[in-house]
Design a protein around this nucleic acid. Sequence first.
DNA 1: AGAACCGATGTAATGGTTTTCAATTAAATA
DNA 2: TATTTAATTGAAAACCATTACATCGGTTCT
Lengths: 330, 330
Amino acid sequence: MSNIKDVAEKADVSTATVSRVLNNPHTVKNETKKRVQKAIQEIDYQPNMLGRNLRRSSTRMVMILLENVSNPFYSRVIRGIEQIALENDYYIVICNNNSDPAQENTYLNLLRSKVLDGVIMMKPELSKKKLQELGSRFAVVQCCEYIDDLDIPFVSINNKKAAYSAVKHLLDQGHQNIGFISGGQNVPSAQQRKKGYKYALQESGITIKQKYIKNGTYGYKGGMEKTRELLSLKEKPTAIFAISDITAIGAIKTIREYNLKIPDEIAVVGFDNTSISRMYNPELTTIAQPRKEMGQKAMQLLIDIIQHNEIKNKNIFLDHKLIIRESSKN
Amino acid sequence: MSNIKDVAEKADVSTATVSRVLNNPHTVKNETKKRVQKAIQEIDYQPNMLGRNLRRSSTRMVMILLENVSNPFYSRVIRGIEQIALENDYYIVICNNNSDPAQENTYLNLLRSKVLDGVIMMKPELSKKKLQELGSRFAVVQCCEYIDDLDIPFVSINNKKAAYSAVKHLLDQGHQNIGFISGGQNVPSAQQRKKGYKYALQESGITIKQKYIKNGTYGYKGGMEKTRELLSLKEKPTAIFAISDITAIGAIKTIREYNLKIPDEIAVVGFDNTSISRMYNPELTTIAQPRKEMGQKAMQLLIDIIQHNEIKNKNIFLDHKLIIRESSKN
DNA sequence: AGAACCGATGTAATGGTTTTCAATTAAATA
DNA sequence: TATTTAATTGAAAACCATTACATCGGTTCT
């Protein structure tokens, strides 16, 4: 494989000039430029990034670190990140931590060893303390999931408000007994949403019943199991608010096993507005997050950090939207 | 940030020795090794991969190039790839081509510029000729989607046989008029599956009707539209075989609009056994591909190519499985 | 004792590019 | 024409780690 020296010799210039043609074309005389470009063509020269990266001490690669790409929630966020990245000549690489701190750490070593210029963390497994330290040494942005007292920029929605509006919608439909199937206990967004759930009930003067609150997982199976628990209560809820669309679908599955009509006998609301919510039968009421825009903002934030641009706003909240569909409309 | 020289000075050895401690620990005296390791600890030294990569002319990073991570089909394939990669100290990076040849090319430049050691291509946008050339210069493996007269190793299922077994199942259920909603015209697997569809019908002595064959997309909307076309025929099909689960779900959606009962009045079979097929209502009959295993084999193949190991089998076919569920069981 | 060998370490070259600084040339000004 | 100034270019250092080769002290063998 040819290198910059070969080009230099072929074009009868120094390597410095070749480099300039590549990176600062306007600083070299037109005639020389032509000659160099011709040489590049002729020997099919492709700059070796490993040399360049070492010299520049930067790779223009940034990582999206998430739980698992299989989670449909991420796809549009990734799109947004990708778009801004490509517009700014950054490469993005996506890595799964699979909820495993060790695996996450393996990937974060890419940051420490200079392979990556920055990282967007979607669902950190690190301890708060380690995250803080990471953020102080490297370019880090939190996206969707975040810890706010950490001095690491983030972009997200207001989860409490979003959950509030979901539950408010159910209350408006006349429901009084509303179950809540939450996510992991230590997931910030789940905690925030629980607050929103409680707040909506309190506001309507309804006492919060612990038996209606189920801490489960984001998954399909979790949704099924927790719903089974809810439906075996003697005072069954007439509505269920689930932490994610998939969880909601698990709920619906179980509800059908119990031969209850949706939404007449029991209403269901999900979260995320993933594509399945529109395709499902019945179509699912849900909360839409501006996923693509979150990705865009996060990537822009990351670029600003990497390039030491002035950052006007380190904490960005975007608006959610309640999308009412069959599963809750009476 | 500290470098190898700092460690060397601290431990009062040469950089060569530090490097040896890092890479060939057994070649250095125990006592010295201890001293070096202590120094590494103390100044929190992390080898700079950019230097190492340049010197080694390798990064141990490989790319998974696919259409878009949002496609749920890929998730388990990625898992398989990831597992083998981590076991062998390779990093994987996932990149979307978003069906855009230009974007794909951008990412493939990472190969040409040495940033990546190899690539697993899941759904190439390149021309056959360019793919061939890529394969001759770099470590490339095709996974799931493949072109076989190309001398580039691949792992896949036998799509013709798989489609055959799906259609055979419908025939066994007594269906005679079976619609086929296919994927893109130029997608190899779609062509192969069409062959399987036709073969099954011919074998049963049923004449193939072009009106029953719809070339659409893999998407939900495509499934809806094409099904509308099929259901507006005066001789409606009593069964639909769709190229993917999502397409099948689009079909079901439309079928419900027409108030037809599934599977009594019309049966539906999908493809891929993505998680939604089990969650959907009705549960979807589909063809399961050994996705994780495909990923594992593909990654192993890629490693073998990168490391110039002997490769016993460059073309690997794995077994599919028909999974019968509500949408077609009578 | 001298030769051959082994283990442990250091020296210095190497990989490919970018960039500072100096040098050269050309153009502009006095 | 002599002097500045600006535009081009080249030489060489720098980025960091790996590794071929040389060195040195100590064994083992004959």
